[in-house]
Write a protein that binds this DNA or RNA. Structure first.
Lengths: 145, 145
DNA sequence: ATGTTAATGCAATTATGTTGCAAATATAAC
DNA sequence: GTTATATTTGCAACATAATTGCATTAACAT
């Protein structure tokens, strides 16, 4: 693996954002996890390193620039994951399925699963689709058996 | 239309809930609307007729009994709709698509649209699917044109 | 009519998210 | 390297949403 920090710095510059400690820290945390990360968890991990308000603003800025995307879990809690590719400020491509595990509560981005096309009643114009599946993730269903 | 109130009272009794004013009022409001109703809206309409806490508890009880189902909109706000049929405390059948209008922010339950089956990665066990489409509802896309 | 259980209303608390503003800092220009 | 400037941060205050404990009230079975 090459230098992650350098990669993050480039990502920030590319999006016209200054290279600041809280921003790098958020990218560091998000990239180190295999599932979407909740706002409360981020807040807890960052502790006093950054103000709560700063975290909100960092996440908001990242979302606007298409660096991360937000997923609401079944409780309505905001979770964030780094966008895999092709996302920008103008167009998010996060129309993949999210999986919310009932047991560990992790949110996985199932990038490989596409949302099937949908027939809606006449008059409705669909812009975006948001599909969240709940159940047991691979790791948790292993443990149960 | 027959006597709505009598129908609601039966519904409550059937679920082992007492026939109280706040509960009947919530059912009355929800049944009179063509889309899911947000908690803030309910709170506003009920005004001082019922305490905020009571409203939360009524909604929670109804959801547990399968009388209503909760849908989170794109902002994470809770919206409630009366379950159409076959729902019970043991099993919710609300796996239809919800449509969140970007313009009027209403949430429609598209009961007629079924969520297509989904292939997920090995190991994942899907329990429920939750699909929210966003865009313009029939009424709003009319107005725009 | 009355006793028991369930439900409500109130007060207090916690969590979550937002806004305005002064101080700090990243970066570009010199 | 220093300085200017615009962005970003941190703080304080506020706003909204949700939860808990407890005393009072109301439903309904007997």
């Amino acid at each position: 693996m090459e230098n992650k920090t350098a990669r993050f710095e480039k990502l920030l510059v590319k999006n016209g954002l200054k290279r600041t400690a809280p921003r790098l820290q958020v990218l560091e945390i998000l990239s180190g996890r295999d599932s979407a990360t909740s706002q409360p968890y981020l807040e807890q991990v960052m502790g006093k390193d950054a103000d709560r308000v700063t975290l909100y603003r960092v996440l908001q800025a990242f979302e606007e620039k298409g660096i991360i995307h937000k997923v609401l879990d079944q409780q309505g809690t905001a979770n964030y994951a780094i966008c895999s590719d092709g996302c920008s400020a103008h167009e998010h491509h996060d129309e993949h399925v999210h999986f919310n595990c009932d047991n560990c509560h992790k949110i996985y981005c199932l990038d490989t699963v596409k949302i099937p096309a949908l027939k809606v009643p006449a008059g409705f114009k669909v812009e975006h689709l948001n599909l969240i599946a709940t159940g047991l993730c691979a790791s948790c269903s292993d443990k149960v058996n």
